[in-house]
Structure formats: structure tokens, C-alpha cells
Nucleic acid binder design. Sequence first.
DNA 1: AACGTTTACAACCGCCCCAAT
DNA 2: TATTGGGGCGGTTGTAAACGT
Length: 295
Amino acid sequence: MGRSPCCEKAHTNKGAWTKDEDQRLIDYIRAHGEGCWRSLPKAAGLLRCGKSCRLRWINYLRPDLKRGNFTDEEDELIIKLHSLLGNKWSLIAGRLPGRTDNEIKNYWNTHIKRKLISRGIDPQTHRPLKETAAMASATSTIAAPTELDFRNAPKSNFIKTPSSLEFKHNEFQLKSNADSLEEPNCTASSGMTTDEEQQQQQLHKKKQYDNPSDGEELNLELSIGISSTDSSRVSSANSAESKPKLGNNNFQFLEQAMVAKAVCLCWQLGFQTSEICSNCQNPNGFYRFCRPLDS
DNA sequence: AACGTTTACAACCGCCCCAAT
DNA sequence: TATTGGGGCGGTTGTAAACGT
């Protein structure tokens, strides 16, 4: 017993969208807003599947999309984010204002993969190709979860309950991934160190986490967790009256919490000299991800 | 000019998550 | 508690454009 289809496929158009279809969709969403994709096609007079409408809007028609070539800064940002998040294109897109997950995914597959390979870097592991090949030919007996296991795990595996302890834990894990980006030959994931050495490394990472100014650590503010200074903000955001309407998904909640405090990532990475860069300002003048800190 | 190959990207498919019932 | 349906996501496919021979 399968699920009923999301729409009546026998009476829907497929393939490229026409200008008329685009205009109908734009007009309808301007008048009624996004949402209820299942009923939208009929209401808008479109012979399309609701999902198709959603995709067309999100990936192509949305007014705040930034069209055109990716900049070198965006390239590097995507590479860094991918090394931390893996193929979580929607999360990566969330950090690139005006870009969609589909766009970034396509760009990754057509450009960045080749770019990394030409640099001698494995696009999946972000490690030197030689090292990856050596690891592949080595044993498959590693029992401990790898960075990739973590990155590719379903979202639901990351956080089950919104306790602050778990937020911290997950933040620490992502910080560790950031470390591995900076230290591609780190031994922690090779499984070659003693327990004591690993403990020391963990302590070192924890120390860096507690006091980021201690080093040149990459801090993308990407972590699933929230820094201690934000915890009060988060707890109020999680209160009944301010809870996101989109559901209790912890990721959504955390994303919103992060956005609430967001400072331009380009600036954080040193790509821009001011806290709000032109990349992060959409055509409507709103800062989707670069709002100045609340005072 | 004709043809084959490669590239780029829009669109689709199927699965998963989660709120509502 | 189980079921259902809507929305979201990542992987894959289809195809037009660009390029090479």
C-alpha cells in the first residue's frame, strides 16, 4: 500500500516551464504568498504538480535570487562549508544569500569537484587524493564513526532533544570538523593515536572552542549549537510565544536562532571588510543572513 | 556544415521528516 | 500510538548550448 501521488500525474505538464506558466505562478504567489503547494497549481490555473511549482519558485522565480556566476569568494566558502557539512546543500545554501541548494549542488558537481581534483584534493573527503586512495586500499575494519559518517548522517541523528548539553556537544563535534579542515593530516580520524593522545587532542580542541581567540581556528558560526552568549536568546526564542511556526524541527529552530544573531559570514571569513557585504544584501534591501546584531 | 562529445543546469523522482489527526 | 499528507531534501536525469573534430 503506497502513498497516494502528490498530484494527478495524468493531467500535469512536465518539462520546461513556459513564460506564461512562470507568470501565473509569480502572480499567484504575489497575491497569496508561498505555501500550500499541493493546492496551488489548481488555484493558480497551472497544470503542474505542486512540487514542481515549489521547485520552480524556489530555484528560479524567487525575487531575491542572485543570478550569475559564482565569485571566487563564494567558491571558497562553498568548499569550506562542504568540508563541514557534506552534501547538505540546503544548509550550505542557507549561508549563501541569493543562491539555491540546487544551484550550489549543480555548481559543485560541474565546477568545484574538478577544481578540487586539480588541486589534488578529494572532493568528498577534502583530503589529499593520495591519502584518500591509501585509506581506501587499507582496511575496512574501522569501527568508530568517521567525519563522513557524521556529516552524512540524517539530521535526526544529530539532535534529539534540545538540551543545552547536546547543543554544546554537537557544536564541539562540528568544531572538530573545522579543525580537521585546517589540519588535513590530523591523526584523530586515522585511528593511529593512543587514547591518551586523543584525550589530549580533544582537550586542546575543547580549549580552542572555549577560547577561540587562542588560535587561527576557522570559525564559521556554522555549528549546530549556540554559543554560551546566545543561550539566553535561544531560550527565549524557544518559548511558547516565540516558537517558530514552521514546526519543532530543532534544525529550523537552531537556524533561526543563528540567523537572529547572524553577522555577515563573508566578513567573518575575511572576504569583506565591513560587517555587511553587498553579497548578502538582497535586491529588496533586506539582509537575509547579515542582519546587524541586535543592540 | 555536419556530427559527436562535453558541459551546464533546470527539472524530476523518490525518500524522509514531522505536524496534524 | 499509528497513520496520513504536505513539504523539504539529495540524487539523478534530460536536454540545450558550447565545443571540438
